[in-house]
Design a binder for these strands. Structure first.
Length: 480
RNA sequence: GGCGAGUUGGCGGAGUGGUGACGCAGCGGAUUGCAAAUCCGUGUACAGGAGUUCGAUUCUCCUACUCGCCUCCA
């Protein structure tokens, strides 16, 4: 029996995790708005909750739980998507606006899948799209209006924040505090400045659906309430997302869901990951340090290197993406792949499971991976204990797999290496000659070019070996 | 202005009321034609102040600084 403990943002405490229904453990993660490529920050919650998902699946076997249901939505109703579709239509693209929107979101979802797959993230059980749940949203809004929690005004439907007395509990604010510090202009038809939109009218250039309040589209928050209810019920176990979603998005979800379904508790545990920075600064387009997961993959940074860097920082802390980390992680993963590709996994290390069970302490788990690897290296050099060596390597690989590392599916970067065969022979011959003549100038010259191109040059009595380093640039090998 | 998080060695980053993880970098050694890689060894830290305590980096309070949210945002 492994007891998972999670820090619950609602209570601000680390609590023992007990599923509502051990036969169906349910979690919901706020997914991306599919208007463009996922940036690096979008990837953090995906990796964090992938580790949680993997841990839950592992622990389920041990604890006799049933299935784990993991839902992550696609928000495909959004002004930026509309803008792209409209721009394409104006540029002469064929089809209705709805078709163009669909095409754009299909395209973006495809990218998202490819990029998250590269990070070794498992696909959730369900990936609902907001546009497939408009009916459920309308039904929920009607219920909220019917029970006095929401009201229609000028084609909009607004949630009446004052009708949910616990509003602000998750983010630790009160409605009065927020009004006092509010800096936003308030729409005149709002009863209360903090009331938020459930439904808004659409003009001809915007996607819209027929509703009791006219043709329009849902506000941002209602989709998660409607989809989590449809797929997980009025009460489920874990709800996750970035800390920036805590307010207003999650606060609003709670208010809507709890008012529409007072029979349920909505989410029992709230898990929020902290933000990501780049070289100590917030990632933003204006600072020029904005990049997508795809940018990194295209630069030759393997997805599992990105993943490993994420895991090295606890999810509750701000994570800084730096070039130094990238190199360090690349070297380490390279080493592991080099030594352990093809090793069959056994069972993950108990200590690593414990570390993960302790509020997803992935950093501690990464440290333990280092310890096991070192033990394995040491036992390998001691020929008297081959069984220990095998046990350690199998345990290492199983543990890495639990963390989503060293997976066969993310190992392409390692197997698709540059073919150094010709260069190795060339260097080897030069070396033999040099050893005889004691003239090392030509050998050193070639070595220098290789090193400058980012190649790791290994020469030993056993022979010559060339390996691509993190900065390997094949173009620099021309002329050899 | 309101709410929240954080401040550990050169860097990254865990953890604990009482001999200060782990990694990278550094230094010394083995190895190497020289290197690289690898292995062995090794130094340095708990923002500042006050308090609780036999004893605090770990608990409490204050100060400083950093960051996030309050507006689309992971």
């Amino acid at each position: 029996m492994t007891q998972i403990r999670l820090r619950n943002s609602m209570t601000r405490k680390v609590e023992d995790f007990t599923p509502i229904d051990a036969q169906n453990v349910r979690m919901y993660l706020c997914g991306p708005t599919v208007y463009d490529r996922a940036h690096l920050g979008n990837a953090r919650p995906v990796v964090v909750f992938d580790v949680l998902y993997r841990l839950l699946r592992h622990v389920a076997k041990e604890n006799g739980w049933g299935k784990i249901t993991y839902v992550r939505n696609f928000t495909d109703v959004d002004d930026k998507i509309n803008a792209t579709a409209l721009a394409r239509q104006k540029a002469g693209a064929e089809g209705s606006l709805e078709d163009l929107i669909r095409a754009r979101t299909e395209e973006t979802i495809g990218w998202y899948h490819a990029d998250m797959d590269a990070l070794g993230a498992l696909r959730p059980t369900y990936e609902p799209r907001a546009t497939d749940y408009i009916g459920a949203m309308i039904a929920m809004i009607e219920k909220l209006v019917g029970e006095g929690h929401a009201y229609a005004a000028e084609g909009h439907v607004l949630f009446r924040v004052r009708s949910y007395q616990k509003y602000g509990a998750l983010s630790g604010r009160t409605v009065d505090d927020m009004i006092a510090g509010a800096r936003v202009e308030v729409a005149p038809f709002k009863e209360d400045p903090m009331d938020f939109v459930l439904w808004k009218p659409s003009d001809a250039n915007e996607p819209g659906w027929d509703s009791p309040w006219g043709r329009g589209r849902p506000g941002w928050h209602i989709e998660c309430s409607a989809m989590s209810y449809e797929l997980l019920g009025a009460s489920f176990d874990i709800h996750g997302g970035g800390i920036d979603l805590q307010f207003p998005h999650h606060e609003n979800e709670i208010a809507q869901s709890c008012c529409a379904h007072p029979e349920g508790s909505f989410a029992n545990y709230w898990v929020h990951n902290e933000m990501l920075q780049v070289e100590g600064k917030k990632m933003s387009k204006s600072l020029g340090n904005f990049f997508t997961v795809r940018d990194l993959l295209d630069q030759g940074v393997p997805g599992e290197v990105i993943r490993y860097i994420f895991l090295r920082t606890h999810y509750s802390k701000t994570m800084d993406w730096t070039d130094e980390k990238r190199r360090d992680a690349y070297n380490r993963l390279y080493r592991w792949r080099e030594e352990l590709t093809g090793v069959k996994p056994s069972k993950p290390d108990e200590k690593i499971i414990d570390a993960l069970a302790n509020d997803l302490n992935t950093s501690e788990a990464a440290r333990l991976l280092d310890v096991i690897f070192l033990q394995w290296m040491q036992s390998k050099s001691d020929v008297s204990s081959p069984r220990e060596t095998e046990a350690n390597e199998a345990k290492f690989v199983a543990s890495a797999h639990l963390l989503g590392l060293l997976l066969p599916t993310t190992g392409e970067w390692f197997s698709k290496q540059f073919d150094f065969g010709v260069l190795e022979n060339q260097l080897s011959e030069l070396r033999d000659t040099a050893m005889e003549t004691k003239d090392f100038s030509k050998l050193d010259a070639m070595k220098q070019v290789l090193v400058a191109a980012g190649v790791e040059v290994r020469m030993s009595k056993a022979g010559v070996e060339l390996l691509p380093g993190p900065d390997f640039d094949p173009a620099k090998l021309e002329g050899l």
